[in-house]
Amino acid sequence: MTLQRFLSTWDGVNRENRFNRLFILLLIAANIGLAVTLIKTDRTVVLVPPTLEHEVTIGRNSASQEAKDVWALFVVELLGHVTPSNANFLITALDPLLAAAIRQEVLKVLDEQTTAIKRENVSLSFEPGAITHDPKNDNIYITGKHVTTGPGAQPVAIERTYVLRIIFQNYRPRVAYLDVYPGPARLSTEPPTPPSAPRGDPS
């Protein structure tokens, strides 16, 4: 019996219908599985910033070290270059970048420092010279020359180090730790600690 004659019989038609229904169910199940996988899959965004020669990757709650370095340098540039005219802008620019755990304390310190800068009419500048990483706590250390200039006085230059921990939440960078001190970077010898509030003067 040829296939064409078999399919023309009632039994052949029934078998073909059963096969088609099974095949359609398998296709539906495969599509549902694919949809669930796509929903649960964490997207990875690949960027090539103009300040870097290599691409960086950013996930929902993670990022490559290069991406963290770029944001750390951006924050340090804001903190290190302050004048009476842009002091208020500093707080506005940094506010959305601060993690909830340190936001209030950092903003309080910044408000005090910017008020003093405007009152004393001084300007701050910072020239990054080196960047160091501490894998134990994921901190980024940026060391450079910090210069304070006031009216009628010679500029005062010192070596200064900014310490930051950059995290990513829903693809957005957040500063989870912030500290600053004079001198070279002092890498931690302690085991990793959870993000904490900043110490010292962040500006």
Rank of each mutant, 00 (worst) to 15 (best):
V109A: 13
L164Y: 02
Q65S: 10
I131D: 01
R15A: 06
V156H: 08
N31Q: 11
F19N: 06
I91R: 11
P135F: 00
Q169W: 06
A101D: 04
K40Q: 13
L27I: 08
N20G: 05
L97M: 13
V45T: 13
V45A: 09
I32E: 04
N121Y: 02
T44M: 07
L34M: 14
L73K: 11
F126A: 01
I142E: 03
A30R: 05
S8K: 15
Y171N: 07
H133I: 08
D11S: 08
V13M: 15
L3R: 13
I28R: 09
I24P: 04
V147H: 04
I140R: 04
P49C: 08
I140T: 08
T143C: 02
D42Q: 13
Q169V: 13
P128R: 02
V56Q: 03
N31C: 09
T41N: 07
G152K: 00
T149C: 01
A63W: 03
A176L: 03
S62R: 14
R43A: 10
V48L: 15
E16R: 14
Q4H: 11
A29M: 11
I158S: 08
Q104K: 13
A116V: 07
P182I: 11
N139I: 04
L124W: 05
P173A: 08
R15P: 02
D111V: 08
L73E: 14
L22F: 01
I140S: 00
P173I: 07
L78W: 11
S125R: 04
P155L: 03
I102M: 10
P155W: 03
V122N: 01
L52K: 07
A130H: 04
L34R: 08
L124H: 09
T132I: 05
F89S: 14
I140L: 05
G12Q: 00
L26C: 06
I32D: 01
N121M: 09
L94F: 02
L22P: 01
R172P: 07
R172C: 05
T44Q: 11
